[in-house]
């Protein structure tokens, strides 16, 4: 990364993220061209996704707004293209631009939510295991071992297939994103749990924690105010990189047909559908979602990579 040559000064030992590193991170950010470009692009993607209902000419999830007589229109700059379908329409008469904006929204929401959920599961498990040790630690870490004995993609496929199967018909569409969030976070929490547990064990044996315990400060308090903040830095880096992974996993599941349903397509669903039109001449149905998905994951990963370099000087 370009950032690693420009950042001055030796690394301080890991301490509170905000205070010690705040200015440092900012300095590094303003001196990394790629990080700034990536952040700008990501901001644009997120903003357009958040405000999709205001920007998009059509609500692609509202079946009543889709006119199939307008199906498979090419982009406006091509012959046969029509306003307001800037990027053309798919086979349902769905405006591609609207579908992509809404699809990006789904991808981002699922990515964020599954990272948040896996953070919650993983950090809780890690803190509890590291702090209390003994039987609890053993059980939690064995569960982690079992999870790690299966590749993430396999766990995600299994969980989403089975959970969806258990939902009653009328919840299939509504519950699809929740199922994906669950599937992805269940495949990704162990990494956090292990990191946090290792860090917790280190902190647990430090004098200030021992002192707090002697003073009968409740365990919850020690965990929340003293130990947790010290585990945040490595977890934050991992979470950023996993955000990109989560988006990719969601797209992959949807591409394989076990993710978001066609009625509320994510980028992966759009690519799966568009893939069937690869040779039919309707290239816009597949190309635009592909570009958007790649762009999204690339900028997220550039930022994650940059963050790791900044916060984890050993890797530079």
């Amino acid at each position: 990364m370009t950032s690693d040559t420009s950042k001055p000064g030796a690394a301080q030992p890991t301490t509170m993220l905000q205070r010690a590193r705040g200015s440092d991170v900012w300095w590094s950010f303003t001196h990394s061209k790629s990080a700034m470009i990536a952040a700008t692009v990501l901001a644009v993607l997120i903003l357009t996704a958040v405000f999709a209902p205001l920007i998009a000419p059509q609500n692609p999830y509202d079946a009543a707004q889709l006119d199939m007589w307008k199906a498979e229109l090419p982009p406006v700059w091509q012959e046969g293209g029509e306003w307001p379908y800037l990027l053309g329409t798919d086979t349902q008469g769905r405006d591609m631009l609207s579908a992509i904006l809404y699809g990006t929204r789904i991808s981002i929401v699922i990515g964020l939510a599954s990272v948040a959920l896996s953070l919650l599961i993983g950090m809780t498990a890690g803190l509890v295991a590291g702090f209390f040790g003994g039987m609890i630690e053993n059980v939690l870490m064995r569960i982690g071992d079992i999870t790690l004995s299966m590749p993430t993609i396999l766990i995600a496929i299994l969980v989403s297939t089975v959970v969806r199967q258990l939902l009653p018909s009328e919840l299939r569409e509504i519950g699809a994103s929740a199922v994906l969030i669950l599937a992805i976070s269940l495949s990704a929490w162990v990494q956090y749990a292990r990191t946090v547990r290792a860090q917790t064990i280190v902190e647990r044996n430090k004098e200030y924690v021992q002192a707090a315990r002697l003073l009968k400060v409740p365990a919850r308090r020690i965990l929340a105010y003293h130990i947790l903040p010290n585990t945040l830095t490595p977890v934050l880096v991992a979470a950023t990189l996993n955000f990109g992974m989560a988006i990719l996993t969601e797209a992959t599941l949807s591409f394989l047909g076990i993710g978001m349903p066609p009625g509320q397509p994510s980028l992966g669903t759009l690519i799966r559908i568009g893939n069937q039109f690869l040779f039919s001449g309707s290239w816009w149905i597949v190309l635009f979602p592909v570009i958007q998905l790649c762009l999204l994951v690339v900028v997220v990963n550039i930022l994650g990579d940059w963050l790791r370099d900044v916060l984890n000087p050993k890797l530079r």
Binding site: A63, M68, E170, E173, P262
Partner: peptide, 19 residues
């Protein structure tokens, strides 16, 4: 999907379960 679109326009409230 097309059936769902047409039914929605005609006063039904369909949901699609496809697998």
């Amino acid at each position: 999907q097309g059936l769902v679109n047409m039914l929605t326009r005609a006063g039904f409230k369909p949901q699609l379960d496809i697998a």
